[in-house]
Structure formats: structure tokens, C-alpha cells
């Protein structure tokens, strides 16, 4: 675990969609090499946080800041954030018919790294990552996410993360809609990409994936705010008690503070 100062720091973040406040003061600090899990029931604001961190135009930050390497990134375009080293794995990845995964990822890598990469060099890089993640090489030639199953789409998100080598990966419900074997494959893939210079924020409703990607910290988000933080044991507690029981305790505790 890292000991340096947090390189990614969210402070009192308030976010609105169409004038409805969804996030009501989120605080989070992430150091290099850490894995944080943000858990919470549906509608708690988890995906809003993910979209806001990447800069989706429909989400408006009305207060607070998001510091990445000391710089507030809230005014930055999504592509600039990607260039800084931020990656979002989408809950619902979009299909881009007619654009091969290979072509897309090469364009993307060139944009993120801001340098030319030869077709040959890129091919080698991609195939290495595909082999590592046990993704069939035929996916390189298929149109991006076009006609892919839910599980295939999620694994392609992980492949993209592996190829783009971000400093911070935010994984939005990467486990949703997957059966247990697929969750294992995705989880193991994430673990194989993780390294001491990288950080992950994994957003999930269910604790299952956390057995494969073990978090250093677990945060429970309810109603647009992180209400409780702890270690991996918090996820285990949630698994044992379920949201209803745990949330009652959490809400009581947070109303007392």
C-alpha cells in the first residue's frame, strides 16, 4: 500500500442533473496503488459520481472540487481527462458500428499518449493484452461492441483499460449483468492489470467482485454522500447483513454525527 499523499482527491462535490441534486458533498482521497470500492444501493449516486469524474456534459458540478495531481479537473473536457490518465469503464458500453476494435483502440491510444504509434507496434501491444486477458484475437477485427454480449462488452472495457494504461481507473458497475464465471474473469483481468503506480475506484452494488479485486478501502454511499468508510471487512459485513440492515445502521450513525 502506498504511503505518499493522495494524488486523487474529491472534496465536498455537489452534482446536479437537470437541476436535481444527486451528489450532496462527496469526499474521497485516493493514493497511488490503492483500490477503493464505492458501494451503495440503486439510486445512491454511484454512477453519477463515475460520469462526473469523466466529465459527462449532462452532469453539472455545482460545488466542490476534484483534484488530480493537484489540479482541479472539473472544467476539463472528457478527452483531456483521458490524457491526464483517467479511465472510466462504462456500465453500458456503447457500440460503434463500422469501427474495428483494433482501429478504435489505436486511435484512442495515440490520443491519450499524444504520440504516433505504428500499426505494427500497436498490434503487438494489443495482442499482448488480449492474450493476458484471455480475450480471443478475433475481437480485434470486430466492430467495437457491435453485437457483443453483456459479458463481452465488459471484458472489452477491461481490455481498453489494459491498453490505455491509465493512472486512475473508475470502474462503473463492471460486474452488473454478469454471471459468476464472467465476474471471475473480469475480476481476475482487473487484478492482472493493477500495479503499484495505478489506482482503482470500483463502483458496485454487489460485494462479489471484491473477492477477485480486493479493495484497500470500502465506502458506502447513500443518498449522494459517502456515509461510512472502512476496510474490506465493511464489504463482508454488507454481504452478511444485506443493504437494508446495514443502511439502517449507517443512516442512524450518520444522523448522530
Amino acid at each position: 500500500m502506498a504511503t505518499e499523499q493522495p494524488f486523487f482527491h474529491i472534496e465536498d462535490l455537489h452534482v446536479e442533473i437537470e437541476e436535481n441534486e444527486i451528489l450532496r458533498g462527496v469526499d474521497l482521497s485516493v493514493k497511488r496503488g490503492e483500490i477503493h470500492a464505492i458501494m451503495g444501493p440503486n439510486g445512491s449516486g454511484k454512477s453519477t459520481l463515475a460520469h462526473t469524474l469523466m466529465g459527462h456534459p449532462s452532469y453539472e458540478a455545482t460545488a466542490g472540487q476534484v483534484l488530480f495531481d493537484g489540479e482541479d479537473i472539473l472544467e476539463r473536457e472528457p478527452n483531456d481527462r483521458a490524457k491526464l490518465g483517467i479511465f472510466l469503464a462504462f456500465q453500458y458500453p456503447l457500440a460503434i458500428p463500422g469501427v474495428s476494435t483494433l482501429n478504435f483502440l489505436r486511435t484512442s491510444l495515440k490520443a491519450v499518449k499524444q504520440k504516433e504509434i505504428s500499426a505494427r507496434e500497436f498490434r503487438k501491444h494489443l495482442l499482448e493484452k488480449m492474450d493476458m486477458l484471455k480475450i480471443g484475437r478475433e475481437f480485434a477485427g470486430r466492430y467495437l461492441n457491435d453485437g457483443f454480449s453483456g459479458g463481452e462488452k465488459k471484458r472489452m472495457e477491461i481490455l481498453q483499460m489494459a491498453v490505455l494504461e491509465p493512472k486512475l481507473a473508475v470502474l462503473d458497475e463492471i460486474d452488473s449483468g454478469l454471471d459468476i464465471d464472467a465476474i471471475r474473469a473480469v475480476g481476475e483481468g482487473i487484478s492482472s492489470i493493477m500495479h503499484p503506480e495505478m489506482s482503482i475506484v470500483i463502483i458496485t452494488h454487489y460485494p462479489r467482485i471484491l473477492h477477485f479485486v480486493k479493495p484497500d478501502y470500502v465506502h458506502i454511499m447513500v443518498d449522494g454522500k459517502i456515509r461510512q468508510s472502512g476496510g474490506f471487512e465493511l464489504a463482508e459485513e454488507l454481504e452478511a447483513k444485506g443493504y437494508d440492515v446495514l443502511l439502517d445502521e449507517v443512516m442512524v450513525a450518520s444522523s448522530e454525527t
Binding site: H56, S58, N79, A82, P93, I96, A111, L164
Partner: peptide, 14 residues
């Protein structure tokens, strides 16, 4: 908007 956002999140300009 979502399709554009997806590609922009991968470093591409609008």
C-alpha cells in the same frame, strides 16, 4: 451525446 462521451472518454476530441 452518450456515444460522443464514450469516445471522448477514450481521448478523442469531439
Amino acid at each position: 451525446e452518450d456515444q460522443l462521451f464514450y469516445l471522448m472518454s477514450r481521448g478523442l476530441g469531439e
